[in-house]
């Protein structure tokens, strides 16, 4: 479905088009997201791109108050914390992402195992504009 190499650049390029893409090993059927260019089980196999459903479940999370520079620039800080987490995708692999639709003022209320769906966050202007992966908790 795409001739692009299985790189982080390609992954974020797809994300810009609001597509969550992984790689699939045609030999053993394993799906990797983030996409891997080499299947550890079948290193000789040629990988292929696969679009993921964007459905998953929250596997872990934290509400982060002390933000790194990039998140400070995005407007987050101690008074405006954000949630990041690990999502187990319906297709199997797990991936890190920002988690939306949660009550960051009450982190205890966030449920591991909650169903999530993919979302996309645009940050930066012009050339520096980039799309980041997020998931939103669906009630």
């Amino acid at each position: 479905m795409s001739e692009q190499a299985f790189t982080g650049t390609a992954f974020y390029g797809f994300l810009k088009e609001h597509q969550l893409m992984g790689s699939r090993c045609p030999q053993c059927g394993a799906i990797y997201a983030p996409p891997r260019p080499l299947c550890p089980a079948c290193p000789e196999a040629e990988m292929e791109w696969v679009e993921l459903s964007g459905a998953g479940k929250l596997a872990s999370y934290s509400v982060i108050a002390i933000a790194p520079t990039a998140m400070l620039e995005a407007g987050y800080d101690r008074k405006n914390p954000y949630c990041s987490g690990v999502v187990a995708l319906a297709e199997g692999p797990r991936i890190s992402a920002q988690i939306l639709g949660v009550d960051v003022a009450h982190p205890q209320s966030i449920q591991i195992g909650a169903s999530v769906k993919v979302a996309f966050i645009e940050r930066g202007e012009g050339e520096a504009q980039k799309t980041f992966l997020a998931f939103e908790v669906v009630s």
């Binding site: 934290s62 982060i64 933000a67 990041s84 991936i95 890190s96």
Partner: peptide, 12 residues
């Protein structure tokens, strides 16, 4: 590329 971009810090 994939963890820090998700907003993760080490404490996070």
């Amino acid at each position: 590329t994939y963890e820090v971009a998700a907003g993760f810090t080490f404490p996070g």
